[in-house]
Nucleic acid binder design. Structure first.
Length: 259
DNA sequence: CGAACGACCTGTTCGC
DNA sequence: TGCGAACAGGTCGTTC
């Protein structure tokens, strides 16, 4: 489920370990991934998150773009232990190695030129002018939840956090974006930052596969109000949480207090 | 052009 | 218990 808080967690955990280190070896164990061994011998100059991607900058202006999709995770091993099943690639350093483990094999790793593209995509965990959102969303006709998880506008929100954000903001996921007032967008932006920051502090949400770099579960699953809580009482009004499909995704909400 | 849907994979859970 | 269907964090390409 790696969404923004989970990738941010990995990013922060990786920085002190691999920054300024040289990549000692790179081994691909899944034929679905392209073989990119040109990174061997290169030094890591920065590790940043962009949306749900992890970008590792190498010397000589290249960057590795890693995306974990649904079930991908990274595991640090400081000494050689057995490889867990579903290990898809290994990035080795002199003092340890990073394993990418991914049962569903959707995760990707790509080497790209470090050409500066100006991306105007909003990072929802940072301060940003809400009028930007209001301008884009005001002319659209689609459910507000679909808008929140569309990575072209806000980068980093996925299904779990979209459900939680709309619950906290008391907004029905099926509301059309153009019907959401500027004041409501402000509320969405505020609760989004609160939830994402809290989830980062909890090192993510482990409802299933997710583990951090050191194999530990996150803690935010203990704070979920609606996600995967169909039939449980709404913490606000005590009516039952419902689950319905919205463009193919399981959507959890309180029909009584999300208007 | 934009939105909906299936595809990409594998593992787990649910219902009969 | 056993088996098939439905479902799962995300994105992409095709279709309407």
């Amino acid at each position: 489920m790696p969404e923004l808080p989970e990738i941010e967690t990995l990013c922060r955990q990786l920085q002190p370990i691999i920054l300024n280190e040289k990549i000692h070896g790179f081994e691909v164990l899944d034929s679905r991934l392209g073989n990119i061994d040109t990174m061997v011998g290169r030094k890591i100059t920065s590790v940043v998150r962009k949306g749900k991607s992890l970008e590792i900058e190498l010397d000589k202006s290249d960057r590795l773009i890693l995306h974990l999709r649904m079930t991908g995770r990274f595991q640090w091993q400081s000494s050689h232990q057995a490889l867990p099943s579903h290990t898809r690639f290994i990035m080795a350093f002199t003092h340890g190695r990073i394993l990418c483990i991914d049962p569903r094999r959707f995760a990707t790793v790509n080497l790209r030129d470090n050409v500066c593209r100006n991306n105007s995509v909003i990072d929802p965990s940072q301060e940003y002018p809400v009028s930007e959102l209001w301008k884009i969303a005001g002319v659209k006709r689609l459910p507000v939840k679909s808008f929140l998880i569309d990575q072209r506008f806000l980068a980093g929100i996925g299904n779990i956090y979209a459900c939680e954000i709309l619950y906290e903001a008391s907004i029905n996921p099926w509301r059309q974006t153009f019907s959401v007032s500027k004041q409501e967008w402000t509320r969405i932006a505020t609760v989004t930052q609160d939830i994402l920051h809290r989830a980062i502090a909890c090192r993510g949400t482990s409802v299933s596969d997710w583990r951090d770099l050191f194999g530990n579960k996150g803690e935010y699953q203990n704070e979920l109000k609606v996600y995967r809580r169909e039939g449980y009482p709404c913490p606000r009004c005590h009516d039952a949480i419902h689950r319905m499909r919205l463009s193919g995704r399981g959507t959890y909400f309180c029909p009584s207090c999300q208007i």
